[in-house]
């Protein structure tokens, strides 16, 4: 019997869990060599998730309601884990600082686990409601989630920074394998730049879409407003860093604050009334 996309995505949840476990073990038991297999496990998780998402896309066409798998909370959580995995692999292979994975893979795993295990989230493929039937769907969701994923990784790096900053001189054991403070600071900045560009693109594609669906590019709906709040926080952070030379802890705290705004934009807004109700559980 052929495998369904739900099964594939359940498997990828476990692969993400395994990767997170290896990275955490490397950190807790002070065995940095464990990060070597861990990166390949992340790669495997990304491959399985990719297959799962593609298969889900195909399945939706077989059901006669074909659409990209980006239309409800379940699909968006899986897509978030996928973008976080892809972006993390890029960072890992470019900068070769594997322990960052200990702060990123758990986030991807939590997203997958929440999608798969929460009783409130349906993993059924549902047809698109009229408002979502648009070519802007893919552009809007993809840009937003690459932005969110970059901010999630920046958040992981900033958490690392704040832990390391308590004892920056300590170089024995695992602490010595955590990247140096200035490297973490620079990497966080790079991630925030990437995230900011994609968040900006996400807000803009959303505005253009809203204008073509409802005739108004901005209506201060809570999700729109919260994405703008997130944008304000990161804009403040970039100005603080570039123009006022803020570095280190101050910027790390702003990055954590920014990610809190991201989380609220994603989940918290569902508690408030508004247009983006199809993201609700």
């Amino acid at each position: 019997m052929p495998m369904s996309s739900s099964q594939l995505l359940s498997i990828s949840t476990f692969v993400f869990a395994l990767a997170a476990f290896f990275y955490m073990a490397a950190l807790i038991f002070k065995k940095p060599q464990l990060t070597l297999p861990a990166r390949w496990i992340v790669a495997a998780a990304v491959v399985v998730t990719t297959a799962g998402l593609l298969l889900r896309w195909v399945e939706s066409y077989q059901m006669g309601i074909g659409h990209a798998p980006l239309s409800n909370l379940y699909e968006s959580l899986v897509f978030f884990a996928w973008t976080a995995g892809v972006l993390y692999l890029f960072v890992e292979f470019k900068y070769k600082k594997p322990l960052i994975g200990a702060f990123v893979t758990p986030i991807a795993f939590l997203a997958m686990a929440y999608a798969s295990l929460s009783p409130n989230i349906s993993d059924r493929i549902q047809p698109l409601v009229p408002a979502l039937k648009s070519n802007w769907l893919i552009a809007h969701v993809a840009t937003c989630f690459f932005g969110y994923a970059a901010f999630a990784i920046a958040f992981g790096m900033s958490s690392m920074y704040l832990i390391k900053a308590r004892n920056p001189e300590k170089s024995d054991g695992i602490m010595g394998h955590i990247p140096k403070l200035d490297v973490l600071d620079e990497l966080t900045h790079q991630m925030v730049l990437f995230g900011f560009l994609f968040l900006t693109a996400g807000i803009i594609t959303g505005a253009v879409w809203a204008n073509s669906a409802w005739g108004s590019y901005w209506s201060w709906d809570p999700k729109e407003t919260w994405s703008l709040i997130t944008w304000f926080v990161y804009a403040a952070m970039l100005h603080a860093r570039l123009m006022r030379g803020w570095q280190g802890k101050q910027v790390a705290y702003l990055s954590v604050l920014g990610f809190a705004a991201v989380i609220f934009t994603y989940f918290g807004v569902n508690l408030l009334p508004g247009l983006h109700s199809y993201g609700k559980v």
Partner: peptide
């Protein structure tokens, strides 16, 4: 002053929350 920019951006972020909690 860029300090003003940062203060304004964070004030806008903070005050914008009100309208998402109290229906408009």
């Amino acid at each position: 002053s860029v300090k003003l920019t940062i203060v304004l951006l964070l004030s806008l972020a903070l005050t914008s929350i009100i309208g998402t909690v109290i229906p408009q």
